[in-house]
Amino acid sequence: MGHPGAPETSVVSDSPRRTREIGEAIGRLARVGDVVLLDGDLGAGKTTLAQGIAAGLGVAEAVQSPTFTLANEHEGRSAAGVPLRLYHIDLYRLAGPEDLDGIGWDEYAMPADGVTVVEWPERAVGLLPDAYLLVRLEPAGPDRRRVTLISVPLDGPFAGRLDAVRDAIGNQT
């Protein structure tokens, strides 16, 4: 793990600021059509990481938790300056995939004009896209989080970009 070209990389974040920086690195490398799934428990830093991704995509407005609204949309742009939309989805209040009908999930799972970031993705098991970047946030001591980035599938569209993310965030362990 962590060697060049690997489909998985892991880094320890010691603060919300650091978690946000990791998100920014992901956002700067994101492309239209990307889906990023954030897997972690309450308080793990999912919204903070999503705010970082938004910052990396040049989103200027506040990125609030979508728990109540289920889906928030923001205007951003790719690193190349191409305008795109950030779809920030939160499935926390859903019981399971059967509740996804009402929120237009199909379009979020294959964003034609932007990037989709999903919190609590396990509620959509069975309806996930074929390819995505999985970001797992796990406790690693007080105020520390192990942040693991996994390209799914291993040779998916993110595999070639993990090296660049690793270089941008440095400090991998």
Binding site: D39, D41, V125, L128
Partner: peptide, 8 residues
């Protein structure tokens, strides 16, 4: 089951 997510 069926996906690489931790059970929260």
């Amino acid at each position: 089951p069926g996906a690489p997510f931790a059970a929260h």
